[in-house]
């Protein structure tokens, strides 16, 4: 990685719902800790700004990202990149036109267990993958008023797509509200059929608080990849040193977190002048799946995705 220091403008401190502020909670501390970035207090068009970290309200997010890209800046954008696939596609078009990096914050794919698994699958360790099962269950924290399909589902969807490299063609989904008091969904079950006939099933949701899981921490986070020549189990609650004490048990690990590794990718893409991975096109495909899931859950039938627009991966 180049040792160039990139100037970062923090734009917006909002998220899905009044309590979500990933800018202050996640990105700002990670930028401050990362040697490749320096947070600058400047206007968008200031030459000192190389990268804009966008956490404006989801309704205005796509427009804000487009404005930053058109101002010649690279962008890190909180997830979801947009609330609809149509808005996400507008962003991806501008990103392609400007040639600037537009990195959606799908940081779970940088988890050390998952990153290693991506390499193993891509290297043929299990042969040709034909099925993935995933569970992404968070315990506690504030339920997203937009629902967990919009909020959390992005993460395991991105991981499944990154693991397999196969786009989804058909979506069957169920949405439920099992733990929270509001109307928003807090559980989604996604049954996808991908290119080359691969199938995947993803459960994602937010349960009530559980002992030994920090608020809004992952109680279950795992993936199983079945391939023509083997099976890969990924338990993303590991690696961990497990601590058992009188009051509670907990886990610790050393090294950069997933957001730190996301910033590594941002820095590498910007300094190398290449598109990031994930890209805005990846976020478009995930938004298409989320839209289709909503339609499927409402109708009770599977929904086929258009095959006209192909994203890059």
């Amino acid at each position: 990685m180049s040792d160039a220091t990139l100037g970062v403008l923090l734009l917006g401190f909002a998220g899905l719902g009044p309590d979500q502020d990933h800018q202050r909670a996640m990105y700002q501390p990670a930028f401050e800790a990362h040697p490749g970035f320096e947070i600058v207090d400047a206007a968008l068009d200031d030459p000192a700004v190389d990268v804009v970290s966008v956490c404006v309200e989801p309704e205005r997010r796509a427009d804000a990202v487009i404005a930053a890209l058109q101002a010649g800046k690279h962008v890190l954008v909180d997830k979801p990149l947009a609330l609809t696939a149509a808005d996400a596609a507008k962003v991806a078009t501008v990103a392609a036109e400007t040639g600037k990096v537009c990195l959606p914050a799908h940081h779970q794919r940088f988890h050390p267990m998952i990153a290693a698994a991506r390499g193993a699958v891509a290297g043929g360790k299990v042969g040709l993958p034909w099925n993935v099962q995933a569970d992404f269950l968070v315990a506690g924290g504030t339920p997203s008023p937009a629902g967990e399909l919009a909020n959390f589902a992005v993460y395991p969807l991105d991981v499944v797509l990154a693991l397999t490299g196969l786009r989804a063609r058909r979506v069957f989904a169920r949405l439920g509200t099992h733990w929270s008091d509001g109307d928003a969904d807090d559980f989604a079950l996604l049954l996808l059929t991908h290119e080359n006939g691969l199938t995947s099933t993803i459960s994602v949701g937010r349960t009530r608080s559980l002992a030994d899981t920090r608020p809004a921490g992952l109680a279950v986070h795992r993936y199983r990849v079945s391939g023509s020549h083997g099976v890969l189990d990924i338990d993303a609650s590991r690696p961990a040193v497990v601590l058992r004490r009188a009051e509670a048990s907990s886990q610790v690990w050393h090294g950069p977190g997933t957001v730190d590794r996301l910033l590594d990718e941002l820095h590498a893409a910007v300094t190398a002048g290449r598109p990031s991975s994930p890209s805005a096109a990846d976020a478009v495909h995930i938004a298409e799946i989320v839209d289709a899931a909503r339609a499927s859950a409402a109708s009770g039938h599977p929904v086929d995705l258009s095959t006209e627009k192909e994203g890059s991966r």
Binding site: L137, A139, W179, V220
Partner: peptide, 10 residues
């Protein structure tokens, strides 16, 4: 894996 209103069983 069973998730319920009050807990998770594995």
């Amino acid at each position: 894996l069973v998730a319920g209103t009050d807990g998770v069983l594995q």
